[in-house]
């Protein structure tokens, strides 16, 4: 088996142009999903029964169906549906089929990531014992202040490893965006490969690229975790044991 190294080198350069698109999907998705996911967490932990049920149903639906299927479904449904709405309901002449397909990618990944993050945030909030909330109230802080200053910072620290996982998973699943004709890393590799049927080489190249990108994300999170968890690091035992005399 001979690998076409020349082709691999060219593909590598080509594929680098897809990285901004890949990261764009990841970052936009996270920026939108984080607040939405947090809202959903609040709904889940709240008193409203209907809200709780709806949130639970949403999460189990999104997490219980394959992303590929969601993409196929949304990508056949959304454009047609939007086209119908624009043409028939609003009477406008905008051609929905020319819209940047990355928007559909956003929709799919935001739907998924919101569900995942809502679970991540929920379990993280529950790791902060409620005594600290009571202590905050007892010295005159209100609930909002206690959440912002005491509870959420600790919950976020606890959630960082899971947020890292979520981000890495998201990064990997952006490779499905080619199904919606988004020109991300995977799509570019496939296009390059299709001319000379060098699929194997192209896939090897993007394997490497994805490993690199994922390691990068994990590295960034690792540093963040270390900085955020400074308050958990016990001083030397001797210090901690020295008692007031």
């Amino acid at each position: 088996m001979n690998l076409d190294l020349q082709f691999m080198a060219e593909t590598f350069i080509d594929v680098l142009h897809g990285i901004p698109v890949t990261f764009q999907i990841v970052i936009v998705t996270l920026l939108v999903s984080a607040p939405l996911g947090f809202l959903m967490t609040v709904t889940k932990l709240g008193d409203g029964r209907i809200g709780r049920r709806a949130a639970a149903a949403y999460v189990s639906f999104v997490r219980g169906t394959p992303v590929v299927l969601q993409i196929l479904f949304l990508y056949s449904l959304l454009p047609t549906l939007l086209n119908y709405l624009i043409k028939e309901v609003c009477g406008l002449s905008y051609n929905i089929f020319t819209v940047n397909p990355i928007l559909y990618a956003y929709v799919v990944f935001i739907l998924n990531t919101t569900a995942v993050l809502s679970e991540v945030f929920r379990s993280a909030l529950l790791t902060v014992n409620k005594g600290q909330m009571e202590a905050a109230l007892s010295i005159g802080m209100n609930r909002f202040q206690a959440y912002v200053r005491i509870i959420i910072p600790q919950a976020l620290t606890a959630a960082l490893p899971n947020i890292c996982n979520t981000t890495v998973n998201l990064l990997k699943s952006t490779s499905l965006a080619f199904m919606m004709t988004v020109k991300d890393v995977t799509a570019i590799a496939k296009i390059d490969a299709s001319f000379g049927y060098n699929y194997l080489e192209a896939y090897l190249v993007i394997f490497f690229i994805y490993i690199l990108l994922c390691s990068l994300v994990q590295g960034v999170f690792h540093l963040t975790e270390r900085a955020a968890a400074a308050y958990k690091k016990p001083a030397s035992v001797r210090n901690a044991r020295r008692v007031f005399s």
Binding site: G131, Q132, E134, A135, S138, I139, T157
Partner: peptide, 29 residues
């Protein structure tokens, strides 16, 4: 604001230093 509570399990703010724990009620509340 007229009372203050000392808890059996301390309930200190784990993400704040001793000084910040004490300042919190003054600065924020």
């Amino acid at each position: 604001k007229k009372t203050a509570f000392v808890f059996q399990n301390y309930n200190l703010f784990q993400n704040k230093t001793a000084l910040q724990n004490v300042m919190e009620g003054l600065v924020i509340a």
